[in-house]
Simulated assay, not measured.
Amino acid sequence: MSDHTLTRRHTLALTGSTLTAGLAGCLDNGTDQLENNGTTDGAETSATRDDSDGDHDHDVEHTLGHPEEHTEVTMESDDDAHHFVPHVVHVESGGTVTWILDSGVHDTVAYHPDNASILPSATDRRVPDGTNPWASDIYDTEGEIFEMTFQEDGVYDYACTITGHGHRGGGHHGGHQTHESTGMVGRVIVGDPDLDPDEQPALQSPSGELPEAARHELEQFNDKTQEALQGH
Results as ranks from 00 to 15, higher is better:
D51C: 00
V60Q: 09
S46M: 05
D50K: 07
V60Y: 15
H70F: 03
E68L: 07
D51L: 13
T63I: 08
T63G: 12
E69W: 01
S52K: 15
D55Y: 06
P67L: 11
E69Q: 08
D57F: 02
D57Q: 13
H58N: 12
T48W: 01
S46H: 10
A43K: 05
H62K: 15
T63M: 12
T45Y: 02
H56K: 11
D55F: 10
G54Q: 08
E44G: 00
E68W: 01
E69P: 04
T63W: 03
D55K: 13
H66D: 07
A43P: 01
P67N: 14
E44H: 04
D55P: 00
T63N: 10
D55V: 07
E61H: 06
S52V: 15
E69Y: 03
R49K: 02
E69V: 00
D50R: 11
E44N: 07
T45K: 01
H56A: 14
G65Y: 14
V60P: 00
H62P: 07
A43L: 11
E44V: 15
E61F: 01
D53V: 14
E68Q: 10
L64S: 09
D59L: 09
E44P: 00
V60W: 15
D50P: 01
D53L: 10
D50C: 01
G54V: 07
H66N: 10
T45C: 04
S52R: 15
D50V: 02
D51M: 04
H56M: 09
R49M: 06
A47V: 14
D55S: 15
D59W: 05
E61K: 12
E68A: 12
H70E: 01
D51K: 07
E69H: 04
S46C: 11
E69C: 02
P67C: 09
R49V: 12
T63A: 14
S46P: 06
A43W: 00
A43T: 07
T45E: 08
D50L: 05
H62Q: 15
G65C: 12
H58R: 10
D57G: 03
D51R: 10
H66Q: 11
V60T: 13
S52N: 15
P67D: 09
E69G: 04
L64F: 13
D50G: 03
H56S: 13
E68C: 02
H56P: 02
V60C: 07
P67H: 02
H56Y: 13
L64V: 06
L64R: 05
T45Q: 02
D51I: 04
L64A: 10
H62W: 07
A47H: 05
D59Y: 10
D55R: 14
D55C: 08
L64T: 03
P67Y: 00
T48P: 00
L64G: 07
H62F: 05
T63K: 03
A47P: 02
H58M: 12
V60E: 12
H66F: 11
E68G: 01
E44S: 13
G65R: 14
E69S: 06
D53R: 05
D59T: 11
D50T: 03
D50E: 11
H62D: 14
P67F: 00
G54T: 08
T71D: 06
R49T: 09
H66T: 03
H58V: 10
E61A: 15
T48Q: 09
T48M: 00
H62V: 13
H56G: 06
